[in-house]
Design a protein around this nucleic acid. Structure first.
Lengths: 203, 203
DNA sequence: CAGTTGAATGACCGAACGGTCAGTTTACAC
DNA sequence: GTGTAAACTGACCGTTCGGTCATTCAACTG
């Protein structure tokens, strides 16, 4: 039993290190230009060792992406559940995402690149990646529908509104990563909330 | 002189065919997975011929991207110049982009993927690509600034507002490409105009 | 400390692919 | 028809890189 646990601990540690290294290297060079050898070196192990834990380069890539996405979705969903009004949910969404990506820049780079690729080769895209992505949009869409029902905001097509909020937030994160000496996460989130809630409120 | 012209015509035809094929193949498989051989086949010529007109795979890629982007920017700029009010400029921007991408889906796929990659390896990104991209955002930013000056809308940070409009539009195009049957371009553009102009109007 | 087990290694393999160039075809001049 | 110059071709080359596996190493056991 002690043996079993020791194995598990080691295995978990290795998997974690591999994914950490994978996020760094994939985030800096993209899938095609990143080499398995480089990921191995960055994880402090030999190339062959990676293949003891993952069956292929693609498997490492999707594992790195899924892990981060799951964590992000869980955090966003939790924060949105804590509040009631549409505006508060909106703020929770934007702020949590901005904060998470501030703390996981390499992950955001992979994520952002993959969203671009998903359109190019949809068949090759990991099923769970697509699902989590849609779950995020659905969080917003159902918040919009609820707000419309409660007459907090005017009638708008929920899917389009959700996509709009989602994209504005993502655009803001890109800006923070590329250029701007970033404003505080709260301030940037406030801009999204301001624009959208004024844009959707009753006439 | 007649000779010269004949050469030019042929050269222009070949370059055009190569770029058309490149947009199709790159748009369906992405840069890394697309093969020069496949582009050649799709253009109806041999691989070697491509290298008579372009020095490398990368050169073909950037030429395909630049050509489309230049055309798009020119169209958007022209349409926006034709109208005066902020709301009309907004509508011109959204409608022209949506229409253009409706008619050039393969091009949009490359473009969208490259925006994702630009973050991952900014050093490798073509200079003109970056410039045209920024020019598009700047078209919006200056429209926002002008509208603020004329007190058409409330005071907002122009860069952030421009980025938001840009991203909402892009998100909409992605939706149209993924989940068909799409609404009319005018209707989708109207949603953007509605959301943003209400979101930015004076309190 | 010898024996045993399985984790870790990295030299190696083969497929894929960007790019080349000797040879072939085409177009045109005379 | 013949010469020739330019356009075109596609078999070939060299490199890169994902993936394998015979060997080494380390940890535990009795």
């Amino acid at each position: 039993m002690a043996r079993r646990t020791k194995q598990d601990v080691l295995s978990a540690f290795r998997c974690g290190e591999i994914l950490r290294a994978a996020r760094q290297v994939f985030g800096q060079k993209g899938f095609a230009r990143a080499g398995i050898d480089e990921i191995a070196r960055s994880a402090g192990i030999a190339k062959g060792t990676i293949y003891l834990y993952y069956p292929s380069k693609e498997a490492v890539y999707w594992a790195a992406l899924r892990g981060g996405l799951r964590e992000l979705l869980a955090e966003v969903a939790a924060r949105m559940r804590e509040v009631a009004s549409f505006e508060d949910k909106l703020r929770a969404f934007a702020e949590t995402k901005i904060r998470y990506f501030d703390d996981h820049r390499d992950f955001f780079r992979i994520y952002h690149a993959e969203v671009g690729n998903a359109l190019t080769r949809p068949a090759a895209t990991d099923q769970e990646f697509t699902r989590i992505y849609q779950d995020q949009v659905e969080l917003l869409a159902s918040a919009v529908r609820a707000a419309v029902r409660r007459k907090e905001i005017r009638r708008v097509p929920a899917a389009q509104a959700a996509a709009a909020i989602f994209e504005v937030t993502r655009g803001l994160v890109v800006q923070r990563l590329m250029a701007r000496p970033a404003a505080s996460a709260a301030a940037d989130a406030a801009f999204v909330v301001d624009l959208v809630s004024k844009g959707l409120r009753k006439p």
